[in-house]
Nucleic acid binder design. Structure first.
Length: 419
DNA sequence: TCTGGGGTCCTAGGACCC
DNA sequence: TCTGGGGTCCTAGGACCC
């Protein structure tokens, strides 16, 4: 059996843990730059705030309904996620952290357990020990556990936040209850295609024939179908090293000068390099892109990306920053207002079996240097050591007007209790 | 004025090899 | 008239996830 544990309205719940006065009150969390809504408490959902609602359009709605607005505080959410995941490890030796707020557990050898009670126990303990409400779905396959989880989330009172699919009857009932677009792995496009052929629910989907599914939804769709039929097809996946690493941002204001864009791209490359070194890889190509604001009809539009193959594999911040800015110079065109840029690194090889090249190689001194920089930044705070070409005065700040304290990761911002 | 960020996997088609 | 058969690798684009 598989269990899927999913935190309810995760970002909103994290904010509420440290603001108990907000229990029962509507909360929304905004994206970077306070652009749009990326998380909502149940109360905010009931008020009709859609996912992706634009902050500036909904400003009055927020005020009118006393909605508590927060800027995204990823330092807080990441730490709260670790707490939840650490507790979950105790419930099974086999687990897969699927995203910041979800994990699968494989329950092998649990035949003597009352899995219903087990699930309820997980939900109770996570809530009590971290303050985060979670829902639990347990079923013979991952796709069915996803559906069981949705049922638990939809009926928290009746299910005590945990639902078990362990009979054929329950499986069929759950599949008929699930609209096709709510199935894990069926996105917008596939849902439309399936609706066209009369598939309205997950159950209808399982009644299609295999070759049609494979032809129209590829092998991925076929695996999903089998999983929904109760035939275990999707297994836990190991946490592998990343295959791509990206750092991309929209700017709070437009950028018109190459030198400003260079600074941003340098910082993005350095950020990618740091993430790359954490997984002890080196990269062989780098992509840089820039674009203007697509949403502004009144401005001239421009969007371009460039992929550069590196002469040697590297994870040095200095070298990646150099290659990135050189690439930027090739695609930069003067006369546009740039709104967004990013750096994506690709084609990784493990640091230990790096292929050296005959004529040109990564500066061997950088390896030691990066190690020292990483160590200092880890102990003294992020970005203590920067390249001179990076922003020294913190000119580039995201718009984060409603940022909550980093209660759990910064001693200076720890919660205060006033008696 | 204002519109997020970071990932994965699969397939078809082209270029190449013997 | 007639023109083999069997592969690999790479890339772009499309689908999906949170």
């Amino acid at each position: 059996m598989f269990a899927l544990i999913d935190c309810n309205n995760f970002y909103a719940s994290c904010e509420r843990v440290f603001r108990p006065d907000l229990v029962g009150k509507p909360i929304v969390v905004l994206s970077n730059n306070d652009g749009c809504v990326i998380a909502r408490s149940n109360e905010a959902k009931s008020l009709g705030i859609p996912m992706g609602a634009l902050a500036f359009e909904y400003k009055d709605v927020f005020i009118r309904n006393n909605i508590n607005v927060f800027s995204a505080n990823f330092a807080l959410y990441g730490d709260m996620s670790n707490r939840v995941m650490t507790l979950l490890q105790e419930y099974s030796p086999e687990s897969e952290i699927y995203s910041i707020d979800e994990a699968f557990l494989k329950l092998r050898g649990f035949e003597m357990y009352d899995l219903n009670e087990y699930g309820i126990g997980i939900s109770k303990r996570i809530k009590k020990w971290t303050g985060i409400p979670v829902s639990v779905g347990i079923a013979p396959t991952k796709a069915l556990a996803k559906i069981a989880n949705k049922i638990a989330k939809k009926y928290p009172e009746r299910t005590k936040s945990s639902y078990l699919i362990n009979t054929e009857e329950k499986r069929i009932k759950a599949l008929k209850w699930t609209a096709i677009e709510d199935v894990w792995g069926i996105g917008r496009k596939h849902a439309i295609r399936l609706r066209e052929v009369g598939v309205k629910t997950a159950y209808d989907f399982t009644q299609l024939n295999d070759s049609w599914v494979q032809r129209n939804l590829s092998i991925v769709g076929l695996r999903l179908k089998h999983d929904l039929q109760g035939i275990p097809t999707l297994d836990l996946e190991d946490v592998k090293d990343k295959k791509n690493i990206a750092t991309t941002r929209s700017f709070e204001r437009n950028i018109t000068e190459l030198k400003d864009l260079k600074e941003r791209v340098t910082t993005f490359a350095v950020s990618c390099a740091e993430k790359l070194r954490k997984q002890e890889s080196t990269c062989n190509s780098i992509m840089v892109f820039v674009q203007t604001n697509f949403h502004r009809q009144d401005l001239k539009q421009y969007s371009k990306n460039i992929v550069v193959k590196l002469p040697f594999p590297t994870s040095s911040s200095i070298e990646l920053a150099r290659f990135a800015t050189q690439a930027l110079e090739k695609i930069f065109v003067f006369g546009y207002s740039y709104k967004k840029a990013g750096v994506i690194i690709m084609n990784f090889t493990p640091e230990k079996d790096m292929q050296l090249s005959l004529f040109e190689n990564s500066n061997p001194k950088h390896k030691q240097l990066m190690k020292v920089i990483d160590r200092i930044n880890l102990s003294m705070g992020q970005q203590k050591i920067k390249l001179a070409s990076q922003d020294q005065k913190r000119v580039w700040k995201m718009k984060q007007e409603k940022l909550s304290p980093r209660y759990t990761t910064q001693l200076m911002e720890i919660i205060t209790i006033i008696s």
